[in-house]
Amino acid sequence: MNGSPSQTLCAPGASHSRLWALVPCAGSGARAQAAGPKQYAPVAGQPMVLHTLAALQGVRRLAGTLVVVSAGDTFFDRQDADVMVAACGGATRAQTVVNGLHALLQRGAQADDWVLVHDAARCLVTPAQIDGLIEACLDDPVGGLLALKLPDTLKQADGDRVSRTVDRSDKWLAQTPQMFRLAALQQALQAAGDAVTDESSAMEFVGLQPRLVEGSAQNFKVTYPQDFALAQAVLAARKA
């Protein structure tokens, strides 16, 4: 797709446009080596995903939050969480998000509404960070994502040897939420296919340039066993 983003998307800022959160929650989390899906593993006294949802519920501008789980997942049947749940998770993240977008439309969302897709396992995000993303993207023709400037020296490998040092000045680590218009994201994901691992990649695939909004090093994705202890320490420090 050629042309600037402002030429390829609908005009933003329509007064009726609402903001929705969508949380893909259908993964198995195999790398975390947890007993069951990692998003339900306990962190600081409660399942990790409930910390994530608490942060989203602290953002008053959100019209609602949809959690997308796998078929047969009954976790939320036992929770008093003020969220919508759709048991339409797919085999990949991209499929889960596409199915979730369709579920949002069925529940009354509109094509030009904004949707903020957030990882269930990024349980340390704060309402202030989410509000910062919204402020930066509400009038943007494309949308954007929280991200972190790469802090470390970046090496390119040749086997187990360094082949070169890569300039890090323009490198960022993608985080979530990632905020785009619902229909535009739906179309981009369908065009990009299942290989994309985040929503920005799909928007990039169709020729758009999402806005980078600086996030926080604490907004990391709990992925490996050692990450649980770090997340627990951060949450405990915040309570203290």
Results as ranks from 00 to 15, higher is better:
Q7W: 06
V142C: 14
P37Q: 13
R122S: 01
I130G: 08
L185A: 11
S163A: 14
Q46I: 03
Q178I: 00
F220S: 12
E135Q: 15
T92N: 10
T8C: 11
S6C: 02
Q209R: 15
D152M: 13
D82M: 00
P225T: 01
Q129D: 07
F228V: 03
G13K: 12
K171R: 13
L146C: 05
A229G: 14
V83P: 06
S200W: 11
G29S: 04
A147K: 04
A86R: 04
A231F: 01
L185M: 07
Y224C: 09
D158W: 10
L133C: 02
S163E: 12
V222P: 10
G13P: 13
A233T: 07
A184T: 15
Q33F: 01
G215W: 03
P37Y: 07
R60N: 13
R211H: 13
W20G: 11
L104K: 07
H16P: 03
L56M: 08
A236G: 00
A229T: 11
L150P: 04
L62F: 12
Q218C: 02
F180L: 05
L19T: 12
A191V: 03
P37L: 02
A26R: 05
G36I: 08
A184M: 00
D160G: 11
V68Q: 04
L146K: 09
D112I: 02
D112F: 11
R107L: 07
A157N: 13
Q79N: 01
V206Y: 14
G36E: 08
P5V: 03
A240S: 14
V162R: 10
S15F: 10
F76K: 01
C123E: 09
G36H: 05
S216H: 07
L145K: 08
D170M: 10
V222A: 09
G108F: 11
L208T: 12
A14K: 14
S216T: 06
A87M: 07
L124F: 02
F220K: 05
A54F: 00
A71D: 08
A109C: 06
G193M: 11
A157H: 12
V85D: 06
Q110C: 12
G36L: 00
A63H: 12
T176A: 10
P151E: 12
V125C: 14
K221T: 14
V69E: 11
A184V: 01
R181S: 14
A191Y: 03
Q57C: 00
G159M: 04
A240D: 15
A120Y: 05
D140K: 05
V85N: 00
P177A: 07
A14S: 15
D77Q: 11
G207R: 10
A174F: 09
L19F: 15
T153Y: 03
G29H: 06
Q110R: 15
T65V: 15
A231H: 06
T165K: 09
A191E: 14
V98N: 00
T96G: 08
V206G: 15
W114L: 12
L62R: 09
E204W: 04
G207I: 01
G108Q: 04
Q178N: 06
Q186N: 14
V234P: 01
Y224T: 08
A195M: 08
R211S: 09
R211I: 07
S4T: 13
I134L: 10
V59D: 12
D80V: 04
N2S: 13
T197K: 15
A121D: 15
F220P: 07
A192I: 05
A30G: 10
I134Q: 04
L104H: 04
A191K: 05
A41C: 11
G207Q: 11
D140C: 07
W20P: 15
V125D: 12
T8L: 03
